[in-house]
């Protein structure tokens, strides 16, 4: 089958369509629920589309919910943790991928060790550390926890992407008199952009959605992150699905927007000059 044939394209869109329905059906259900009135949500049989659009849920969340505060708290914590993690992880990944250090493979496995243990049991000792540092009930505690928890994956992912990039280009740059490290930064790093973007998104989402650390370390309502805020919100309106779903939709859209932005501008801009050239 040729990839320009109509049949091939139909098949492609068909399979994509099935995957897409699977991926977004629950989300669509969230959106239409958010647009229903309170009474319409719990009717039998359930209706897929609201009989008329109700924006009150969104308004209610926007105005009297604290979700906006939680939203910005999450944004702050997840962004700082992500940027820090990615910088440290890039350095480590370069070390693993481009330098020969005896024992570095064992070290890499050791990095993953912390992730092999159920999180519920790591929370108490983490809490002890934060208490000794006297940073409980601060965002700093969360940032430190998230860095330590996202870093191993990020290092593994980035090492994988760096490994996939041929070394000849940085070697030719080195002939021009640049140091090895300099050549990697200037030549290899831009080529690895898709990988760095993927790793960044992964790190961001892990930090953005984390629940149990945030729930244990944070006491003050004004410092709550989004998952905790949503959980509190659920305690309050547990079966007011229209309100809950409006909250969920509002919390999801910015991440999608961020991703689309990264896809369009960063990846497209950088890769066009690199591998493809």
């Amino acid at each position: 089958m040729n990839e320009n044939s109509t049949l091939f394209n139909i098949l492609l869109y068909f399979v994509l369509g099935i995957f897409l329905i699977f991926a977004i059906f629950p989300f669509l259900w969230m959106v239409t629920t958010a647009l229903k009135s309170g009474g319409e949500v719990l009717t039998y049989p359930p209706k897929i589309f609201p009989s008329s659009f109700h924006w009150e849920s969104f308004q209610k969340i926007w105005t009297d919910g604290n979700l906006m505060i939680y939203f910005f708290n999450s944004l702050k914590v997840a962004s700082i943790a992500t940027v820090t993690t990615i910088i440290i992880a890039i350095l480590a990944a370069i070390g693993f991928s481009r330098y020969d250090l005896p024992g570095s493979e064992s070290l890499k496995v050791l990095f993953l060790v912390s992730q092999l243990f159920p999180l519920v049991l790591l929370v108490t000792p983490y809490y002890n550390i934060m208490r000794i540092l006297d940073i409980l009930d601060t965002h700093l505690a969360l940032i430190i926890a998230y860095i330590s928890f996202v870093l191993p994956f990020s290092v593994w992912m980035l090492t994988n992407y760096f490994n996939a990039i041929p070394r000849d280009m940085e070697e030719s740059a080195m002939i021009d008199g640049t140091t090895k490290f300099g050549a990697i930064i200037r030549v290899t790093l831009p080529l690895a952009t898709p990988g760095i973007v993927a790793t960044t998104i992964n790190a961001f989402i892990l930090a953005w959605n984390e629940f149990i650390f945030a729930q244990t370390f944070i006491d003050s309502p004004s410092l709550r992150t989004l998952p905790i805020g949503l959980r509190a919100f659920m305690g309050q309106y547990q079966t007011d699905w229209n309100l809950l779903m409006a909250g969920a939709v509002i919390s999801t859209i910015p991440v999608i927007a961020l991703f689309m932005f990264l896809q369009r501008h960063v990846i497209a801009g950088l890769t066009s000059g690199g591998v493809k050239g």
């Binding site: 108490t124 809490y127 208490r131 729930q215 003050s220 905790i228």
Partner: peptide
């Protein structure tokens, strides 16, 4: 006053964790 979401996981177990941690 620190409002905390009620529930065995979010409230009781959190208290057990933090009090065992000395706080």
């Amino acid at each position: 006053l620190i409002p905390t979401v009620y529930g065995s996981g979010s409230y009781r177990d959190k208290f057990i964790r933090v009090s065992r941690g000395g706080g």
